[in-house]
Design a protein around this nucleic acid. Structure first.
Length: 109
DNA sequence: CCCATGACTACAG
DNA sequence: ACTGTAGCCATGG
């Protein structure tokens, strides 16, 4: 079935489509995803993920600095270890962060 | 149109 | 590393 979302707006559709294209082991920041559409709507992207994130690899989208979504640090780590995403040690509560320099991805690549 | 919300970002202290 | 403030944008009431 194609249309499975409640009422997918153009913006929401673009975000979900792009996130779904991120290859395993690679990641993008909210800002990168937003700028891909020609706009700095990092927050708007986060909202789309909160609502429809269950249908896309949300763990491949992180915040600036390589930290996973707020409230999902532990959940995301499981996927990173499973996909072999490069992680780095951090002095944060989660104790880790994603190596953006090595895992950052763009649809152009 | 106005207002509130949120899985954001950057800067300042 | 931490918190607070300001700016950003789409969505919903």
């Amino acid at each position: 079935m194609a249309a499975v979302f409640d009422r997918p707006g153009d913006y929401t559709e673009q975000v979900l489509d792009l996130v779904a294209q991120i290859p395993s082991g690679r990641v993008m920041t909210y800002g990168d995803v937003a700028w891909t559409f020609g706009r700095p709507g990092a927050r708007a992207v986060g909202m789309v993920m909160r609502y429809h994130g269950s249908s896309v690899p949300w763990w491949r989208v992180l915040r600036s600095g390589g930290h996973p979504p707020t409230g999902h640090e532990a959940r995301a780590r499981e996927h990173y270890e499973e996909e072999g995403t490069p992680l780095l040690p951090a002095s944060t509560e989660a104790g880790y962060r994603v190596d953006l320099a090595a895992a950052r991805w763009t649809p152009d690549s």
